[in-house]
């Protein structure tokens, strides 16, 4: 009886060692590769926008395609900060007539996507900044396996993520 229990434990342990760990290791590597691809795609996208001064639907579609080619689903967040050079009055009580610094106001993914949908491009100007943040929304195999074994799960955990941002260098037209 005791012998067969130990045998079963040994078989389970052997199964974990022989199958699960390699599988976890492989899936982790897989995520690393996806991470690299996503980071590269994000950097390329931002650099392209910086050098051309516009977000086009071709660019954006290309980014989405490159992302989905990694086999995961992603949430893409874009933020464009528009430079408003008009002098703002600083609203402090002591110096109400003091002229303030440059201001930025932000435009986000949904607004940009709407514009891309209607006119195919979103124009930026010199001095604006663009930033992108990409996260996976599905659970990759590595995440699932990890959750199964050490159950460190939460609703917001992500495995593959990339951020990049930069200042736009030319006026888009």
């Amino acid at each position: 009886m005791g012998d067969s229990l130990i045998t079963i434990i040994a078989i389970v342990l052997a199964a974990i060692l022989m199958f699960i760990f390699p599988l976890m290791s492989v899936s982790e590597r897989n995520d690393d590769i996806a991470q690299l691809a996503v980071q590269t795609a994000a950097v390329e996208f931002v650099d392209d926008v910086r050098n051309t001064g516009k977000i086009t639907s071709e660019n954006y579609d290309k980014l989405i395609q490159t992302l989905s080619a990694t086999g995961n689903s992603y949430e893409v967040e874009l933020e464009v900060k528009k430079l408003d050079e008009n002098p703002g009055k600083k609203n402090s009580q002591t110096q109400t007539d003091k002229i303030g610094e440059n201001l930025y106001y932000s435009v986000f993914t949904s607004q940009i996507e709407e514009e891309l949908g209607s006119s195919g491009k979103y124009l930026l100007k010199e001095g604006d900044t663009i930033s992108i943040s990409v996260k996976n929304t599905n659970r990759t195999i590595a995440q699932m396996l990890r959750n199964f074994f050490y159950s460190v799960s939460g609703s917001n955990t992500y495995q593959v993520a990339a951020q990049h941002s930069g200042v736009v260098l030319v006026n888009g037209r």
Partner: peptide, 28 residues
């Protein structure tokens, strides 16, 4: 001293960049 602007309106406030063409050239 505070900076001054070369182009001002009738009240002496600096002229501002057009929000339609210069600040946000999208929708333009």
């Amino acid at each position: 001293e505070d900076p001054y602007y070369m182009y001002v309106d009738e009240y002496g406030n600096p002229l501002q960049a057009c929000y339609y063409c210069i600040v946000d050239s999208n929708n333009y």
